[in-house]
């Protein structure tokens, strides 16, 4: 029976630089990714959504024939004379800017709140309240857009007009975007941001929750074993390890924020302008397409313009969604299949 004697004792201090063969970790991971991709392409189920998107794009292209695709199409001006008295200008960038002005803050708010919700459910809350919070956030996802919209202009708009807007301006009026005129009836960008925030939260919270939950327990325990407090483990281990999933959540939320039409159309005040501040009415690309659709049946050139807008919206939504799927990796599949753990 051997004892301590036969151990090769390394020299004190710097050990001998014996080359250690690198583990084929990365290559293995890549190979797995490639085969998964191949599996996806081979699967007819995967081709179905691809085909649908291509079909939608093709129909939109055909319908619009890109009739307005001049330099002014990418501009910031919109003017349409339905009776044909003056030439029309369809600048899509105006609506893209508006979409960003509304979706950006909504996404920032939703991401922050979702992160708080996800951290509480995964790390801090005991199982029962945690499950309740998850249930409640998921419930928000089940409310139809139009209900948010009606709630927005019937209940929230008066409150925003008389209280929320003046209060916010009172405190933050010195900040650019927070001062200036209010929207008398309460509808406007701020209300749209508020409604969108609530609508985005269930998506971002669910993806964030799953990615935090999927952080290996090993990593968490390793952090704790190094003398980190639970909060330090959240900040320095969980958030770091789940970073991709968290960014994925943000992109999926952005897709929702940019694409939402009905609820936004009902509360944003539908004014075709870049809003001079957060309170005034504006319009997002998606909501504009939605509420102009009926008129477009009267005016063929408006219809082609809207179809081109829809193409732009489709492109933006696709890019955002792909970025989200890419960033969140497996977590996105959880959402798509509607499953997830527990």
């Amino acid at each position: 029976m051997d004892r301590r004697e036969p151990i090769p004792r390394p020299a004190d201090g710097a050990s001998t630089p014996t080359p250690v063969p690198a583990l084929p970790n990365r290559r293995a991971a890549n190979g797995e990714g490639r085969s998964r991709l191949r599996g996806w392409l081979a699967s007819p189920v995967a081709l179905l959504p691809l085909g649908l998107v291509a079909l939608v794009a093709a129909v939109l292209l055909w319908e619009s024939r890109l009739a307005n695709l001049g330099p002014s199409f990418w501009g910031l001006n919109y003017f349409f004379d339905p009776s044909g008295g003056a030439p029309s200008v369809f600048g899509v960038s105006l609506f893209l800017v508006d979409s960003a002005i509304v979706a950006g803050p909504a996404l920032a708010l939703a991401s922050g709140l979702s992160l708080a919700i996800a951290i509480s459910t995964v790390v801090y809350l005991p199982p029962a309240p945690s499950r309740l919070l998850t249930l409640l956030t998921n419930l928000l996802a089940g409310i139809p857009s139009v209900v948010y919209g009606i709630w927005g202009y019937v209940v929230l708009a008066p409150y925003f007009g008389t209280t929320a807007q003046p209060t916010l301006r009172g405190f933050l009026g010195w900040l650019p975007g927070f001062g200036g005129p209010l929207s008398a009836g309460g509808v406007g960008s701020l209300l749209a941001i508020f409604i969108l925030t609530i609508m985005v939260i269930p998506i971002t919270a669910a993806v964030m929750r799953e990615s935090l939950r999927n952080v290996p327990n090993d990593l968490v325990e390793a952090g704790l074993a190094l003398g980190a407090t639970p909060w330090e483990v959240v900040r320095r281990v969980r958030l770091r390890a789940a970073r991709r999933g968290l960014w994925g959540a943000v992109f999926l939320g952005l897709g929702r924020a940019i694409g939402e039409s009905v609820a936004v159309a009902m509360v944003i005040g539908a004014s075709i302008q870049i809003p001079p501040n957060l309170y005034t009415p504006s319009t997002t690309l998606a909501s504009f397409i939605f509420y102009q659709l009926d008129s477009a049946f009267f005016y063929p050139n408006l219809l082609t313009a809207l179809t081109e807008f829809a193409l732009v919206l489709l492109a933006v939504a696709l890019v955002v969604n792909l970025l989200g799927q890419r960033a969140s990796g497996a977590d996105a599949t959880v959402i798509v299949t509607g499953g997830g753990r527990g």
Partner: peptide, 16 residues
């Protein structure tokens, strides 16, 4: 002009 839709003056609120 006039029609079922109109390019309203910027800032005026619209409702569904």
């Amino acid at each position: 002009g006039y029609g079922t839709t109109y390019s309203w003056k910027a800032g005026q609120p619209g409702y569904q």
